[in-house]
């Protein structure tokens, strides 16, 4: 059958790729993909979201390390039984070597641990806001 649409292999080209937000900042890795079966009928599932963060990574690592990671994720989350952090696939702009999004990092669920470390530790150290000392000219 002829398909007009682009064809890719998900494991090779999407999985484990760096995610970059609309401002060029790094927003995690594609730790997993969410596949959803369409409502009625028995058509093939659609990629509906990227799953990222410890909630998603824990399942792939498995074993004791994975369960520990899962508990870290749950502890950081206000809800009692959180699923992994989700980035709806509609937010993806394009992907090649990395996956580029149309939204800034702050609007995504994945920023939780980053915010905690920033607010609890890094912000307390002088110089945290500044760009490193610049060298003019040359």
């Amino acid at each position: 059958m002829e398909y007009a649409g682009r064809m890719i292999d998900a494991g090779l080209q999407l999985l484990d790729r760096q995610i970059i937000d609309v401002n060029g900042e790094m927003a995690g890795n594609v730790d997993d993909l969410e596949l959803t079966f369409p409502g009625e009928g028995t058509g093939p599932p659609i990629v509906t979201a990227i799953l990222a963060g410890p909630g998603a990574l824990s399942r792939r690592i498995g074993g004791r390390l994975g369960s520990w990671l899962e508990s870290v994720h749950e502890r950081l989350h206000p809800h009692p039984d959180p699923g992994p952090a989700r980035i709806p696939f509609g937010v993806v702009k394009k992907f090649n070597a990395a996956v580029e999004l149309t939204l800034p990092r702050a609007e995504l669920e994945v920023d939780r641990l980053e915010k905690w470390v920033r607010d609890t530790i890094i912000s307390k150290i002088p110089g945290a806001e500044n760009e490193a000392a610049t060298e003019e000219g040359g």
Partner: peptide, 15 residues
């Protein structure tokens, strides 16, 4: 070993 995807589903954002 891999899952092959084709881009022919319902419209979904800028992609």
């Amino acid at each position: 070993t891999d899952v092959r995807l084709v881009q022919d589903g319902p419209i979904l954002g800028e992609l």
